[in-house]
Nucleic acid binder design. Structure first.
Lengths: 298, 298
DNA sequence: TGGAGCGATACCCGGGCGGTATCGCCGTCC
DNA sequence: GGACGGCGATACCGCCCGGGTATCGCTCCA
C-alpha cells in the first residue's frame, strides 16, 4: 500500500463523499474512484458502502481509517524527525517539548533550568511548543514533538514511553465568593455535582464534546473565565493555582487521587534508546530530586 | 514520502550497498540511486555518505532508518488488520494473541478458558501465535498480533497500552545437583555472579548479542539444555518452573523484584477504544480475580 | 597503469496516474 | 411520470515518472 492510497482513502472516509474528497485532495473525482477501487480489489474487501445518497464506511473501512491515520502519522513523523536530525547535524540540535499552554508553568520553567544545568545538555536546545489541551499526543505521533508534559489522569498516556516526573494533589477552582471557597479543603464529591457549578466538558480528540450539563471549554482561558462568571467549577492539579486570577479561589481537594505528570517520548522504547543525537533525548535525565522520581529500569 | 521510497531507503540502509539493495528489491540499480537521490533532495539533506568503498549512514540517515521502519510497520499493520477485519465481517472474527513459546503456558490456558466463558466473547475466536522471545513487540507493531503476553522486566512494554494481569515471584533455575539447589531460597546476588554458571545472553531485537561471559541462547529449549549441562543458570518468573525437566531445580529468589505480566494492545489507546469489532479486543476483559488486577482507568 | 567494483548519469520505453467527457442510477420536484 | 440534478463509475486520452539498458567517472588494488 502506498501512502498516496492511504491519503486518498482517509480523505474519502472523512468526507464520505468522493467529490468533496477529490476537491480536498486537489485532484479530479475519477482518479479517486479508481484508486479506492484498486485498494478494495487488492485488499479483497469493500471499504465503502456506496449508497444512492453518499457513502458509508464498512467494518473493514473503519479499521483501515484508524490504521491509516496511524500509518500516515508515522510517515509524517519520519519526515519531520529526519529533517530535524539534518538541522541538528549542521546547526544546533534540539529536542521539541510539547506542553499544554497555561498549565504546568512553574514545572516547565524549572525543568528547562534543570536541563540547561545538565552536563551534555549544553549542545541541545529544548524547543517548547505550547498547544491546546489534548493536542500533545497528536504532536508526539506525527513527529512535531519528541517529548511532552502530560497530566494523568486527564491526558491519556497509553501508547507512550512515560516517566513520572512529579506527583501532586488537586485543587478545586471556584469563584471567589462561593460558599465552599472559604473552606480549608473540600471533598471531591462536594464539587463534582454542584448543580449551579457543573464541571466543564473538554473536547474529545475528534473535536466533538461529550454530553453533559457543563459548558464546553477548549482552553484554560475559557475555563477560568467561565468559573469567574460563576458558570462552572473545575478540579485541576495543584500547580494550576499559580498565576490564578484574583476573582478565583483554589481549595485543596482532600480525597482526590494524586495526579502525576508524565513525560512521554516517541512511541517505542527503541526510538528512545537509539536516537541518533549526541545528547539525551529526555530533558532532565538525572532530574533534581524535587521533580524526578527515578528512571525507568530498562 | 511514499512507502516505496521508504522501502528503498531501508533496503539500502540495511545493505549499505546500492547493488545488493536493488537486487533484494528486484529492481535495477539506477532507479534505486535516483529514488534515494530524490528523497535526499526533497528532505534537503544527505542520508548516505557515499565513500569509494561502500556506503555509510549519515546522522539524518540513521534517524530516517529508525523512523521508516516504524512507518512501514504501521502501513503493514494497516493492511493486515484491514484484511482481518474483512474476514471478521464475513466469517469468524478473531483476536490474535502473541505469546512466547514455552513460557506462561498455564496462564495462557486459563486465560483462554476465562475468555471463552465471557459473555460476548463467544463470537470472537482468540488465535494464539507462539513466537520466539522478544518477537511479541514486533508482531504487535506490524499488525500480525493484536495483543501479547509480555513479561516485565524482561520484555519491554514501552510504547504499548498495557495492563498488569498477574504478578509473581521469580525462581532461579539450576542444575539438579548444584549446591544451591538444595537451599529453600537464594538471594539474587548469589546466582547472578556464579563464576561457573553465568547468566545467558539473549539476543537484542536486531539479532546481535550483548557482550558478557554467558552463553548465547535464542529460546527456552536452548536455555534449559544449557542449564542441564551445567553451563548456565537463569532467573525466570515462578511460572517457569511448571513443566521443568527433571534434571533441573527451581529455587525461589527471595529478593528478586516481582515480575508482572502485561497484555499490551496496539500502540495507541484510541485503537483499543474504537476497534471496529463487535467484541472486546482484550481477552479477559473482566478477568477472574486470580489473574486480573483491574482495568485501566480510562 | 589497467582492471575491477560501485555509484551516478544519459537515454529510452511503457504503465500508471490524472485529466475530460460521459454514462448509469437514483431521488426529487413540478 | 418525466425532466432534472446529484453522485459515483466508466471510457478514453495524454503525459509524467518509474524502471530498464548502456555507459561514464571515480577509486582502489594488483
Amino acid at each position: 500500500m502506498e501512502t498516496r492510497e492511504l491519503r486518498y482513502f482517509v480523505a474519502v472516509a472523512e468526507e464520505l463523499h468522493f467529490g468533496r474528497a477529490a476537491q480536498r485532495l486537489g485532484i479530479a473525482q475519477p482518479p479517486l474512484s479508481r484508486a479506492i477501487g484498486g485498494l478494495e480489489r487488492r485488499l479483497g474487501t469493500l471499504l465503502l458502502e456506496r449508497g444512492s445518497r453518499g457513502v458509508a464506511l464498512t467494518e473493514a473501512g473503519a479499521v483501515l481509517l484508524r490504521e491509516a491515520r496511524a500509518a500516515l502519522d508515522a510517515v509524517e513523523a519520519a519526515e519531520r524527525r529526519t529533517r530535524r536530525a539534518a538541522l541538528a547535524a549542521t546547526g544546533r540540535p534540539a529536542v521539541v517539548l510539547a506542553a499544554k499552554a497555561g498549565a504546568s508553568g512553574e514545572l516547565l520553567a524549572k525543568l528547562l533550568d534543570a536541563y540547561a544545568a545538565e552536563p551534555g545538555a549544553v549542545a541541545v536546545a529544548v524547543d517548547v511548543v505550547l498547544c491546546g489541551p489534548g493536542e500533545q499526543t497528536r504532536l508526539l505521533h506525527d513527529g512535531r514533538a519528541d517529548v511532552a508534559l502530560l497530566h494523568r489522569p486527564f491526558d491519556d498516556t497509553a501508547g507512550f514511553d512515560t516517566e513520572d516526573l512529579h506527583r501532586e494533589g488537586q485543587v478545586a477552582i471556584l469563584p471567589a465568593g462561593h460558599p465552599l471557597s472559604a473552606r480549608p479543603h473540600v471533598r471531591l464529591a462536594e464539587v463534582t455535582d454542584l448543580p449551579d457549578l457543573p464541571l466543564p466538558r473538554w473536547p474529545r480528540p475528534d473535536g466533538t464534546f461529550p454530553d453533559g450539563p457543563g459548558p464546553q471549554v477548549r482552553d484554560h482561558t475559557q475555563l477560568t473565565q467561565l468559573i469567574a462568571l460563576g458558570r462552572a467549577c473545575a478540579v485541576v492539579p495543584e500547580s494550576g493555582r499559580t498565576g490564578l486570577r484574583e476573582d478565583l479561589t483554589a481549595v485543596p481537594v482532600s480525597d482526590a487521587p494524586t495526579s502525576p505528570r508524565s513525560s512521554p517520548g516517541p512511541h517505542t522504547a527503541a526510538q528512545q534508546r537509539s536516537r541518533g543525537w549526541s545528547a539525551p533525548p529526555l530533558p532532565c535525565r538525572r532530574p533534581p530530586p524535587k521533580y524526578g522520581r527515578g528512571r525507568r529500569s530498562h
